[in-house]
Design a protein around this nucleic acid. Structure first.
Lengths: 241, 241
DNA sequence: CTCACGGGATCGTTGAACAAAAGTACTGTC
DNA sequence: GACAGTACTTTTGTTCAACGATCCCGTGAG
């Protein structure tokens, strides 16, 4: 690496490099909407009117439709022909699948622990510490964000950018799910200790222990969410809206 | 490599023009182009002119851009701002990552063999038999297709539709890779026997054996492809563009 | 109560238009 | 002849207005 002691600012610039090239209006619009949706400001099931949103953001319908395509591909919006796009509504079944998927992918990633570079472990450690700092400052939503970053770090153990990108989108879906837990502190805080415990297993390269911790971790979280869904969405025919 | 000289594929597109007439135009256009690209009719690196293709298919630029956006998200096309979209050119590194990814995902899927429904096994069997039938009739490209269906079946063992969709796109990328093997028979035929062997292990629910077979299977295929890439793309500065 | 039938709203798609960026050809200088 | 700077051309990015197609919903007949 030529980025020696002198030029840390050079590498800093590289972070913004793609930010320059990415000046496409459609993608910026998608970014804005993505935030609004994942933060829960636009509740699931809401219909996204092309006209209203296009006017509000000052972009044409065509550009807005490109942004919609992007977000629909990320499964944050669903596109129904001739009906429009809606904020995704996740069901209990989705939660079950998402956790089955996490179990499979993150489990496989942990199994690659032996061949993972130290830098990935450092990323995971940073996420754990971010979460603890956010908790100590009572920023509970940020605790949730750090939590997902922790798991994103675990996925990095697998060493596949494509898989990382895929799980990034899965984690965006999970954010949607988390909104059923009306008390973010109660939901996220207990996992801080477990994150640290799991991280310790990773740092000592104890694959077996890490795998076990992860499995019970995910199973517990799934159980919590499924129970919350059972309360919020009683059994019976689904009544949209 | 420009669009003019060797571009007979542009006029070939006009044959599909009349297929446009049902459901969403943009998605149908994407479907047509997806086929053309994965079948190798439009070689990697080709620039996809909005005007030329829009005219050939008889759709407006706006609609075509929606189709491009779709295919770019599937990684079959790459979109460079203010320069246009190009057919993806895959590198040796891509091959390595793709096989690392397959190893991880398919390996994890096989490990779920115990809880997989019999119907999935039946799907896998069907793919094996399709491949053998295609081979006996000397339809070598179809052998490749059946091969990928076989692996898609393995992914289904995991029981996650999201993962299946993800791997479907990965398999589309693989099709792009396979085109470096100029002799499809030599490349695909030897795997027919191994498919059958692996299927037998799955049908007898022998997870361990299946896992082992899969691992060497994928490692061999990767080695073959990497070697082919080393021949076709000698070490040296990349002359993309 | 059910079902057919409009009216109105919204989506799907087109074609034209223009600014901005990239690509290309042409100059003039050394 | 090599090179830099400058127009010119092509292509993309984005907007706008329009119109047919489709869906939603309320109304009224049966």
């Amino acid at each position: 690496m030529s980025t020696g002691a002198l030029g840390t600012w050079v590498s800093d610039l590289e972070k913004d490099k793609d930010l320059i090239g990415r000046s496409s209006t459609a993608e910026r619009v998608a970014g804005i909407l993505r935030d609004r949706v994942t933060e829960g400001f636009i509740p699931p099931g809401t219909r996204m009117s092309e006209e209203a949103i296009g006017e509000a953001l000052g972009v044409s319908r065509n550009t807005l439709r490109e942004a919609f395509r992007l977000l629909a591909h990320e499964r944050l919006l669903v596109h129904e022909l001739n009906r429009g796009v809606f904020v995704r509504t996740l069901s209990k079944d989705d939660v079950v699948e998402l956790y089955r998927l996490r179990q499979i992918v993150e489990g496989a990633a942990v199994r690659e622990l032996a061949s993972a570079p130290d830098q990935v472990i450092a990323t995971i450690r940073a996420a754990v510490e971010d979460g603890e700092r956010a908790a100590s400052e009572h920023r509970w939503p940020d605790v949730g964000t750090a939590n997902l970053q922790f798991h994103q770090g675990i996925v990095q153990l697998a060493g596949s950018p494509r898989l990382e990108e895929f799980m990034l989108r899965i984690h965006a879906e999970l954010r949607l799910v988390f909104h059923v837990m009306h008390n973010p502190r109660r939901f996220h805080e207990p996992y801080l200790a477990r994150n640290r415990e799991l991280m310790a297993a990773l740092e000592s390269r104890n694959t077996q222990h890490a795998e076990l911790l992860l499995a019970v971790y995910l199973a517990d979280a799934e159980r919590q969410l499924v129970r919350a869904f059972a309360g919020a969405e009683p059994s019976g025919p689904e009544l949209a809206r």
